[in-house]
């Protein structure tokens, strides 16, 4: 038994850099493959709506924007960032990004729409 067993470690800390991350000033770097905000690529979507079926919180809505054109609406206030939709999507139209700073004061801003965009790589018929 020894009182003040941590004394040496504690005194050593004075000369070390603090472990604290000064967050808003110093941004965190998310690792590769982090499951952040979901990105939607309308050019790849075929409208099977499997993501809607598998989403545990019903955060995704896929709407038809025209013949063979689909757009997505995400409710980020419901999303739990499990990225099951990314795994489910057969055409890889959905993907995770490293974006984590998603807090909003206004709940309406959490509803993110991905309108249909013409994919330049896809040849027009």
């Amino acid at each position: 038994m020894r009182p003040g067993k941590m004394l040496r470690e504690v005194l050593g800390s004075v000369f070390k850099k603090p472990a604290t991350n000064l967050y808003p000033a110093q941004k965190m770097d998310m690792p590769e493959g982090f499951r952040g905000k979901i990105k939607f690529d309308s050019g790849k979507c075929i409208g099977c709506k499997m993501c809607m079926r598998d989403c545990p919180t019903n955060a995704i809505t896929i709407n038809k924007a025209g013949e063979g054109k689909f757009e997505a609406v995400f409710d980020l206030s419901r999303c739990i960032y499990c990225a099951q939709c990314v795994d489910t999507c057969p055409k890889k139209a959905l993907s995770s990004t490293k974006e984590v700073e998603l807090a909003q004061l206004d709940k309406k801003k959490l509803i993110v729409a991905f309108p249909y965009k013409e994919d330049p790589a896809k040849p027009k018929e």
Binding site: A19, M30, P31, F34, I80
Partner: peptide, 21 residues
């Protein structure tokens, strides 16, 4: 502080710090 080491490992292999999915 030391727990952060294992949290970082978990974040980089699973994609999340908790609720690894």
């Amino acid at each position: 502080r030391d727990r952060e080491v294992v949290m970082d490992i978990l974040a980089s292999i699973t994609g999340n710090r908790v609720n690894y999915g």
